[in-house]
Computed example of a mutant assay.
Amino acid sequence: MTSIDRLTNLCPPPPTAPSTDWPSIEQSLGMTLPTDYKQIADTYGPGAFCSFIHLYHPHATTPWTSITGSMPSTIRTQLQHDRDSGTYPVPHDLRHLFVMGVTDNGEYLFWVTEPANAPEKWTITANEARGPQWYTYNGGLTDFLTAVLSGQETVPCFPDGLLTQGVSFTPTPPTTIDTGPQPPTSTTADTNDIRAWARANGYDVPDRGRMPVAIVDAWKKARNQ
């Protein structure tokens, strides 16, 4: 049984997922992506595992969760600032970190891209949201997800009750077009997208619950909505 088979047996994917022109995506990124990531993206599409772990995807509905969006460089800049200011130590060479996922609490998932020309050997690391802790998994993304979702691997900065409601994958709803006035706190985006944008732009946002109106309004203005 392959790694992707073990993952899909544990966490069934949706019936369909969008296809991706991977050569074009890799050309735009300037690097070859791990095969298992591409298998996950092709099998599940954009969405969240256990309503918590969001992998960046070429077909994400916003640039804040897109694998080709601005977040990888934005997060690398933030980490460099943290290192330079002595805020939080980073136990990896920043040149070899590429963010490819985020949790609902604001932890980021990275590939440790060493060796750069051997993506099948890349490992996974995650940082604590607003804290100094880092976790590293000595394996690829599919095996990491399978280990975490099966309970075989515990990520210290993930919540203890991650698997309380069972293992699931929830596809991201497609972006819809507004047809009329909306309440101030209404948005068609996934709340996690707004959290990711807000944190990348220096806002202090809650881990759960309704987003503050001011932050939602700022997010809309940034998107010219």
Rank of each mutant, 00 (worst) to 15 (best):
Ile4Val: 15
Ile4His: 11
Ile4Tyr: 10
Leu7Val: 03
Asn9Val: 13
Asn9Lys: 07
Asn9Arg: 00
Leu10Tyr: 00
Pro15Trp: 02
Thr16Asn: 13
Thr20His: 02
Thr20Met: 02
Trp22Tyr: 10
Ser24His: 09
Ile25His: 05
Ile25Leu: 14
Glu26Leu: 08
Gln27Tyr: 10
Leu29Asn: 00
Met31Phe: 10
Thr32Phe: 01
Thr32Cys: 08
Pro34Arg: 01
Lys38Tyr: 02
Ile40Lys: 04
Ala41Leu: 05
Ala41Met: 02
Asp42Thr: 12
Asp42Asn: 14
Tyr44Thr: 00
Gly45Leu: 03
Phe49Met: 03
Cys50His: 11
Phe52Tyr: 13
His54Met: 10
Leu55Cys: 01
Leu55Ile: 04
Tyr56Trp: 05
Pro58Val: 10
Pro58Gln: 04
Thr61Cys: 12
Thr61Ala: 11
Pro63Gln: 09
Trp64Ser: 12
Thr65Trp: 03
Ile67His: 07
Ser70Ile: 09
Ser73Lys: 08
Ser73Trp: 03
Gln80Arg: 14
Arg83Thr: 15
Arg83Asp: 13
Arg83Trp: 07
Arg83His: 13
Ser85Asp: 13
Thr87Asp: 01
Tyr88Trp: 12
Pro91Thr: 01
Pro91Trp: 00
His92Ala: 12
His96Thr: 15
Leu97Met: 04
Phe98Gln: 05
Met100Asn: 11
Asp104Tyr: 01
Asn105Ala: 15
Tyr108Val: 11
Trp111Met: 07
Thr113Gln: 11
Pro115Gln: 02
Pro115Leu: 01
Asn117Ile: 07
Asn117Arg: 08
Ala118Arg: 10
Lys121Cys: 07
Asn127Met: 07
Asn127Cys: 14
Glu128Gly: 08
Ala129Lys: 09
Arg130Pro: 13
Gly131Pro: 05
Pro132Lys: 02
Trp134Pro: 10
Tyr135Gln: 12
Tyr135Asp: 15
Thr136Cys: 10
Tyr137Trp: 11
Asn138Asp: 15
Thr142Tyr: 02
Thr142His: 06
Asp143Met: 12
Phe144Gly: 08
Thr146Tyr: 04
Thr146Lys: 00
Thr146Cys: 02
Thr146Gln: 01
Ala147Cys: 09
Leu149Asp: 05
Thr154Gln: 12
Thr154Pro: 04
Val155Ser: 03
Val155Arg: 09
Pro156Arg: 00
Pro159Ile: 06
Gly161Gln: 11
Thr164Trp: 02
Thr164Arg: 04
Gly166Glu: 06
Val167Ile: 13
Ser168Gly: 06
Ser168Cys: 12
Thr170Ala: 08
Pro173Val: 07
Pro174Phe: 01
Thr175Phe: 07
Thr175Ile: 14
Thr176Phe: 05
Asp178Met: 08
Gly180Tyr: 00
Pro181Cys: 06
Pro181Tyr: 01
Gln182His: 05
Gln182Thr: 12
Pro183Gly: 09
Thr185His: 10
Thr185Gln: 14
Thr187Tyr: 14
Thr187Glu: 04
Thr188Tyr: 07
Asp190Phe: 03
Asn192Met: 13
Asp193Asn: 10
Ile194Gln: 03
Arg195Asp: 07
Arg195Ala: 08
Ala196Thr: 15
Trp197Ala: 02
Ala198Ser: 13
Ala198Trp: 08
Arg199Phe: 06
Asn201Asp: 00
Pro206Val: 09
Pro206Thr: 06
Pro206Phe: 03
Asp207Cys: 10
Arg208Met: 11
Gly209Tyr: 02
Arg210Leu: 15
Arg210Pro: 15
Val213Gly: 07
Val213Ile: 13
Ala214Arg: 06
Asp217Gln: 14
Ala222Arg: 01
Arg223Met: 14
Asn224Cys: 11
Gln225Ser: 13
